Simulated assay, not measured.
Amino acid sequence: MPKMKTHKGAAGRFQVGKKGRLKRRRAGHNHILEKKSRKRKRRLNTETIIHAHDEKKLKRLLGVR
Rank of each mutant, 00 (worst) to 15 (best):
G20H: 02
G17Q: 01
E34F: 09
K39D: 11
A11G: 01
H29C: 13
Q15P: 00
G12Q: 12
K41H: 07
R25S: 14
G28V: 03
R13D: 01
K35L: 10
R42D: 05
G28S: 13
Q15L: 12
K19D: 15
K19A: 07
K18G: 06
E34H: 09
G28M: 04
R25P: 04
V16G: 00
Q15H: 03
K19V: 04
Q15F: 03
K39N: 14
R26Y: 02
N30R: 09
H31Y: 10
H29L: 11
F14C: 01
K18W: 02
N30P: 00
S37P: 06
K23F: 11
L33W: 03
G17H: 00
K23A: 06
V16F: 00
R40Q: 14
K39V: 14
E34W: 04
G12A: 04
R38M: 10
R21C: 05
L44H: 10
F14H: 01
K23E: 06
R43S: 12
K19T: 07
R43L: 11
R24E: 07
A27R: 14
R40K: 13
H29P: 03
G12R: 10
F14R: 00
V16N: 02
H31E: 09
S37Y: 11
R21Q: 15
R38I: 13
S37H: 09
R25G: 08
G20E: 02
E47Y: 09
A27L: 13
H29A: 15
F14L: 01
R13N: 05
N30I: 06
H31P: 02
R25V: 09
H31K: 05
G12D: 03
R21T: 11
A11Y: 03
R13P: 01
G17C: 01
N45C: 11
G12T: 02
K23S: 07
N45Y: 12
L44T: 06
N30E: 12
R24N: 04
G12K: 15
R25H: 13
N30W: 07
R42S: 08
R13T: 01
R43Q: 11
N45I: 05
R40G: 10
L22M: 03
K19S: 10
H31S: 08
E34M: 09
K23M: 06
L33G: 06
R38W: 11
S37R: 12
R38Y: 10
G12E: 05
R21L: 06
N45T: 12
A27S: 13
A11F: 01
K35V: 10
G20K: 02
G28F: 14
R42C: 02
R25A: 11
N45R: 14
R42F: 14
H29V: 14
K18N: 03
K41E: 04
